[in-house]
Amino acid sequence: MAVQFGYSINKSNTIDMDTAPRAMESYLLLHEPSFARCIGCGCCTATCSSGVFTQLNLRQIQLRIRRGETQGLLPEIQKCMLCGKCQMVCPRGVSTRNVVLSIQRALQLLS
């Protein structure tokens, strides 16, 4: 029985990492290598200008990409206004703006 902490960023589910589609992740690691440095701390999401109005959650998007759950990503990522606050606060120095733009480009190439 799973412990309920009362919060989570994803619903519980099962992912088979052997078969999960990793193309998006590979694309990002190639075109924005700093993506690999993300520790999922969530500073980006906490400071997000769009987050005030929407459910845009870069931390969750990062997690979804790592798990290959890239369906339905486009409307999510396009909520970003590219203001760059997340990049300024990122403690790991991830170029988050380029991550967002690269995700859009990858979606275009992979679709």
């Binding site: 200008s49 005030v52 109005f53 206004m81 590219l82 203001c83 760059g84 703006r97 733009l101």
Partner: peptide
Amino acid sequence: REGGICCGRPMMLAGETRAAREL
């Protein structure tokens, strides 16, 4: 004061003119 819509320039600089126009 409670957070606002971005001015649009970062969007413009990234080449997304149409989205910038909307902002």
